[in-house]
């Protein structure tokens, strides 16, 4: 049993409420059970790392949480709405307004400048041009790129590109930020900078879900969920002493 007295129980409202979901794929003649019954509850302003070796169902879970895919069975509540029963347009709307994706390879549009890349979610949300530019600019200033508004992605360093991607994820004020190996393509120093940006975002009240296989990166989160063979192996909250040691660094 976990010692709950020594850890910080999250108390905010539930954002993600996954109950016993499964996901099966048909690969040729075989059925692959990627997820075999996973339950996960995420509260507002949590900072969670999802870890696991490849083939553990980590990516499938991330796609599920990110509303890119729907489960074969089980229930997925997002802010109280059942995602499992949504159609493609409703899923697109959830991705647009409630989820901010940050990818390992940044995935910026190469021909669009920084501002335009960050405006993109607002365009799909139907925000008017003036508000759009204002919000995108402000978000870019928040991630420290106020002086790079009109640069193309290929004129930016890796760390700067990832900051643009994070600004894009933040610009629609989503309920969660879903980062998939966000430091995987960065050197360790830049990686640390990005992680401290996440820490900053977390402290400002954002909910962050980090998918990674690196323990060093996962260490930044307050809660770590480990997957193996499509099942949750462990779900650990950071203990108070750990938190204290973190505050010292």
């Amino acid at each position: 049993m976990m010692d709950t007295r020594d850890s910080i129980r999250p108390v905010g409202p539930v954002v993600i409420d996954i109950e016993n979901i499964t996901k099966d794929y048909v690969m040729g003649e075989e059925i692959v059970h990627a997820l075999r019954g996973v339950s996960l509850r995420v509260h507002r302003n949590e900072y969670i790392a999802i870890m696991g070796p490849s083939g553990s169902g980590k990516s499938t879970l991330m796609n599920m949480v990110g509303c890119l895919d729907t489960p074969t069975s089980g229930r997925y509540g997002f802010n109280g709405r059942n995602v499992a029963e949504m159609d493609d347009d409703e899923l697109a709307a959830i991705r647009n307004r409630e989820i901010g994706f940050v990818f390992q390879t940044f995935n910026l549009l190469p021909r669009a400048n920084t501002l335009r890349n960050v405006e993109l979610p607002l365009i799909y949300a139907g925000v008017d041009p003036e508000t759009r530019e204002e919000r995108a600019t402000q978000t870019l200033i928040d991630v420290g790129l106020g002086d790079r508004l009109h640069h193309k992605p290929n004129e930016l360093s890796g760390g700067q590109r990832q900051r643009v991607a994070i600004a894009r994820a933040l610009v629609n004020r989503p309920s969660i930020i879903l980062a998939d190996e966000p430091t995987g393509n960065l050197d360790s120093k830049t990686g640390e900078e990005i992680m401290s940006l996440f820490e900053d975002l977390y402290r400002r009240g954002n909910t962050i879900i980090l998918v990674t296989h690196e323990a060093d990166i996962a260490r930044h989160a307050r809660r770590t969920v480990r997957l193996r063979d499509g099942l949750i192996e462990s779900d650990d909250l950071m203990t108070v002493p750990e938190l204290e040691s973190m505050a010292l660094t």
Binding site: G66, A92, N96, N107, L120, Y124
Partner: peptide, 14 residues
């Protein structure tokens, strides 16, 4: 890839 990115940030099929 671009289409995937656009969809992930909320572009609908239409």
């Amino acid at each position: 890839k671009e289409i995937g990115v656009r969809k992930s940030i909320g572009a609908r099929s239409r």
